[in-house]
């Protein structure tokens, strides 16, 4: 009798799902707006403004005041924020303190950063799943313990320490890779080998974090009755993990990976600076130095949109997996 009832409710369940997705997106957009307001306020609170920060030696106070007026800095911050926000839906991210379009300034670095963080994300997912499953297949044995300790230590070490270590080993001692990213004529990294060290510097701590999550989620599942039954059915360990334990662990794992994207994008700022990688990390650093509010906001909105998308994907995965089990 249960089946017809379920069949009847199934079509109704997809509609609320779409509705829920829309609601989640709306909430994220609102959150992003609040975040941007905070960015405007924070830059305002920093000492100095774009006009003084970009002033050249020997400029008179009148010149600075004139540029302040040109940049609209003489108007209150909420007015500038409102103006910037109303232009946003048209894809206009405003004009930087040096008079360039923010979209143009981000056009090259943002894809570079996406490439760096995306590669790091994919590698992290693959490595964390592989290591977590490998450890879960050998509960309590040396491999499990070594992976567990290594994962914790990797996560505990900050990116810049790992970066310095990588530079020492892969560049200074062995000379396999150049210490800084060389860019080609178009401003992108000259060869793909330039990506290796920045990606590794991001992947290592994030893999540590996610391996711990994968291992823990699998351990929870290992205690589930159907996993124990699969073991008593004499199924191979690999099949038990991949087919019986992992699907139930997916929601927790997806959430872990999604939170990683934030840390990955944050990590790029440090890593890009260390490796001189042409990404938004460098743009952000110089934008903060020159109190360039529209440029900072542009970087924040790009990063925020990327993180929101990944979080939404994780939520959808969770909804899908949990939906299969009423």
């Amino acid at each position: 009798m249960a089946a017809p009832v379920r069949a009847a409710t199934a079509p109704r369940r997809t509609l609320p799902l779409l509705g829920r997705v829309a609601a989640v997106v709306a909430r994220r957009v609102l959150l992003l707006a609040v975040l941007l307001a905070a960015v405007f306020a924070a830059v305002e609170l920093l000492p100095g403004d774009a006009a003084t920060a970009t002033s050249e030696r020997g400029e008179s106070a009148a010149d600075v005041a004139a540029r302040r007026q040109l940049l609209g800095l003489d108007r209150p911050v909420w007015e500038r924020f409102g103006e910037w926000m109303t232009a946003l839906p048209t894809g206009d991210l405003g004009t930087s303190a040096r008079g360039q379009k923010v979209t143009d300034l981000l056009a090259d670095p943002f894809p570079n950063t996406l490439l760096l963080a995306g590669c790091a994300f994919l590698l992290t997912v693959a490595a964390a799943l592989a290591l977590g499953c490998w450890a879960a297949a050998r509960p309590g044995r040396p491999a499990d313990r070594i992976i567990g300790h290594a994962a914790t230590s990797a996560f505990a070490v900050p990116e810049f320490v790992i970066s310095v270590g990588l530079l020492l080993v892969l560049s200074l001692w062995t000379g396999w890779l150049p210490a800084v990213t060389l860019t080609g004529a178009d401003g992108d990294p000259a060869t793909w080998t330039m990506l290796i060290m920045p990606v590794l510097a991001l992947v290592i701590p994030q893999t540590g974090w996610n391996t711990t999550i994968v291992r823990g989620a699998l351990a929870d599942q290992a205690a589930a009755p159907h996993v124990e039954a699969a073991r008593l059915d004499g199924l191979p360990t690999r099949r038990i993990i991949l087919r019986h334990a992992l699907p139930g662990a997916v929601p927790a794992i997806a959430t872990g990976f999604a939170t990683s994207t934030g840390m990955l994008l944050g990590g790029t700022v440090v890593v890009e600076a260390l490796f001189n990688y042409p990404g938004i990390g460098g743009v952000l650093a110089s934008a903060v130095a020159s109190r360039d509010t529209p440029l900072i906001a542009g970087v924040v909105i790009c990063g925020g949109a990327a993180i929101s998308l990944v979080l939404l994907a994780a939520d959808l995965i969770r909804a899908r997996v949990l939906g299969a089990r009423p």
């Binding site: 009755p225 159907h226 124990e228 039954a229 699969a230 008593l232 019986h244 699907p247 299969a324 089990r325």
Partner: peptide
Amino acid sequence: RTRLAYVGQDPGSALNPR
């Protein structure tokens, strides 16, 4: 796997719900 099979007291929970 091949010669000996066991069905526990609560077979419902022993079946993978997915």
